[in-house]
Design a protein around this nucleic acid. Structure first.
Length: 84
RNA sequence: CGAGUAAGCCAAGUGACCGCGCGGCGUGAAAAAUCGCCGUGAGGAAAGUCCGAGCUCCAUAGGACAAGGGUGCCGGAUAACGUCCGGUGAAGGCGACUUUAAGGAAAGUGCAACAGAAAUAAACCGCCCCGCGCCCGCGGGGUAAGGAUGGAAAGGUGGGGUAAGAGCCCACCGGCGGCACGGUGACGCGCCGCGUCCCUGUAAACCCCACCCGGAGCAAGAUUGAAAUGGGAGCAUUUAAUGGCUGUCCGUCACGCUCCCCGUAAUCGCUGGAACUGUUUGGCAACAGGCAGUCAAGAUAGAUGGUCACAUAAACAGAACUCGGCUUACGGCUUACUCGAUAA
RNA sequence: GCGGGUAUAGUGUAAUGGUAACACAUUAGCCUUCCAAGCUGAGAUAGAGGGUUCGAGUCCCUUUACCCGCU
């Protein structure tokens, strides 16, 4: 997974998910998006306002459990320095 | 038990916590937001976009034809269809059963490589007769049974007949024509006649015949329409100010106001319909009619998920204007039937 | 949403329904002391499946992948 991070001027939190056609068919893409949303939502109160994030999914995400997705998302956000 | 054939059904459910879309009610002075409660929330193919319709806009007096495209045995069903149902013929399978683009080759044109003597026309090897000749063989004639080539060689099998043969003659089968009967019809069945029964195949080659088709598509289309920029028209002009063209002067353009165009976007279209469920009547069936009941997603980057428990949840796959089909992908289950093996 | 096209040797392209051709590349041999050049050969079941036909790369249907156009 890849995280693209841009600081925003206004105190807002905008998060987007990019799941390309290489990941799979429509059912699999929808599922990946749903799981990513579910993984990011608990982190929302911890993230400092004023940021724009884009999560880009790569193909191994289809064979991975939800817990791994959750830990990867948390690691990426920590690496970006948004939460302590 | 194995191998098949046909028809049909399901596409998970329940509970706990946390979340999502839409609708209703409450909260809120009102709108929006928030919060709470209740209801509801993807498919058999939602897919491919191969056909047919509704709906909307454009064109069109009405009709006919051409071009282009499509369909093509018969009868029925349907809003319509290239779909479905029931039949006929043909083909395949031991069988249950299945498949079928199945009009016209005597309207015309084209094509049929190679092989073969010859491909729409006839005699290479043969067989037979006659003449010459010592047998081999040569010349003339008859013939198309056999061989050889080919996907296809002027019906097939058997018998008679003959110098050898040949529908030359006969029987059966096939073919063509006519009549009668049955059937709505495709067609079936029977009888009679025809041996001039000469005319290959290909129309999924052009084509002919019959029938059908105006075009575009919900990003259709309708309503509303902020700011800025751009374009157009009109008005106003102070010898005002500001900016550009040259630092200054003159000149000129823009900047002002009103209207129009363009249009970021929002709302509608958007789900009550050739609808679904049950039952009954008619029909072999497709289907149609009656009665009763139900309202059952409507998003706009696109909603169904996460963690658990129930031994375990598996295939293909995610609505985007809506229906009727077709095609393709795919898991499981049930019923009936056929064939084979084994046992009684 | 609507419509069109392409797929042939490793690569780029041809061919009227009748033996799949050309160039470069690959490879084997010849030539040369060796290399290059040159000469002579070899390698394809036509994206996949089915049908029409005596015969299909070509005609028809289904399907897969890619490309393009309109809105």
């Amino acid at each position: 997974m890849v995280l693209i991070y841009t600081p925003a001027e206004a105190p807002e939190k905008r998060i987007g998910f990019a799941v390309g056609k290489k990941i799979g068919n429509a059912v699999i893409r929808n599922k990946v998006k749903r799981r990513l949303r579910e993984a990011v939502t608990p982190l929302l109160p911890e993230i400092a306002p004023g940021c724009r994030l884009i999560f880009i999914a790569r193909s191994p995400i289809t064979e991975v459990t939800f817990k791994e997705i959750e830990s990867t998302v948390r690691r990426l956000v920590q690496k970006a320095g948004l939460i302590g």
